[in-house]
């Protein structure tokens, strides 16, 4: 008996139910929890579609990191929530929002359903040329060789997002430490976890980074894991957030994009095009770019979660 349609069907129903619940629920904290569960469900859907790379990213970013980010936002909004809950938007604003969202969903559904059969694809070209990159994972090959420009711009966008968050800092705290101060409870459970888990997490992150060349994985997932380990140590109070004025923080943030750009421009004289790799050097160059990006992504994501500077530095 083939159970696959049953599993997929229940997954679709669950995803839709969680999505509707997330929109309908009144309490923003509950909505955030719903959204994180929605991210994890979507990761399962990606697994069912055999897109393991997307599933890993969705679970790490959609379920994990965005969840933490939104929970912090929800907790911060809590004192004002009862005031805002009273004045709900007018019915026509709600209706307009519903019509807009519905129209977008409908348009997307129409586009997906009217795709020509077989759908247009560049997969055969990727399969044909993947040997020239020395990589085994087609997703990594597309992200860092065939469409490297997109990945470069993504890395830059992430830094821009952090600058946008930092620009919310009040003038008197500029250059200081982001977020609140977490007090260390030396014998607490959280401190115990923050001592026990990071060594494991760092090993897993490097493993995910390394297998990314040939199997699902890569810098983004690995960087998210590293960010999570750092955040755990910060939230347990074992270490404090660095001041954002520090030079090493700034360098860590831009290293990924800078290395990417340098290797990209080096491609012009050595390989004849921006972001082209010389014959035979593709894999080592891609590894260097990925390693630098992983560190920058880890630092950027962690600082995004921690928010704008809110405390004056001690110095």
């Amino acid at each position: 008996m083939n159970m696959a349609p049953l599993v997929d069907g229940s997954l679709v129903v669950l995803i839709l139910a969680v999505a509707i619940w997330t929109i309908a629920v009144r309490d923003s904290f509950a909505a955030v929890v719903g959204y994180a569960i929605y991210g994890l469900m979507l990761a399962l859907a990606w697994v069912r579609l055999a897109a393991i790379d997307a599933a890993l990213t969705e679970a790490a970013i959609g379920g994990g990191l965005t969840g933490v980010l939104l929970i912090r936002a929800a907790v911060r909004l809590r004192p004002t929530e009862s005031v805002v809950a009273g004045d709900s938007p007018a019915w026509f604003v709600k209706a307009l929002a519903a019509v807009l969202a519905g129209a977008v969903s409908l348009a997307l559904a129409v586009v997906v359903l009217t795709l020509p059969e077989p759908a247009p694809t560049l997969a055969p070209q990727v399969a044909e040329h993947i040997a020239s990159t020395g990589l085994g994972n087609a997703v990594t090959a597309v992200l860092l060789a065939f469409r490297a420009t997109d990945t470069l711009l993504e890395a830059v966008v992430l830094v821009f997002a952090l600058i946008a968050v930092w620009s919310l800092a009040p003038d008197r705290f500029w250059g200081g430490r982001p977020g609140q101060h977490y007090h260390l409870e030396a014998n607490g459970m959280l401190a115990y976890l923050a001592r026990l888990l990071p060594p494991l997490g760092i090993v897993v992150a490097i493993y995910v980074f390394w297998v990314g060349a040939d199997l699902p994985g890569g810098k983004f997932q690995a960087g998210t894991l590293l960010a999570a380990m750092w955040l755990l140590a910060i939230m347990a109070g074992l270490t404090d957030v660095p001041e954002v004025r520090l030079v090493w923080v700034r360098i860590a943030l831009v290293t990924g994009s800078a290395v990417f750009l340098i290797i990209g421009f080096a491609g012009v004289p050595f390989a004849g095009a921006f972001l082209a790799y010389p014959e035979g050097y593709a894999k080592p160059l891609i590894l260097i770019i990925e390693a630098a990006s992983m560190l920058s992504i880890a630092v950027t994501l962690a600082l995004l979660v921690l928010g704008p500077p809110e405390r004056r530095g001690q110095s």
Binding site: M189, L190, L193, L197, L200
Partner: peptide, 13 residues
Amino acid sequence: LLVLLAGAIASQL
């Protein structure tokens, strides 16, 4: 084992 660890600590917290 990791889920055991995370589950035990999260429920403690």
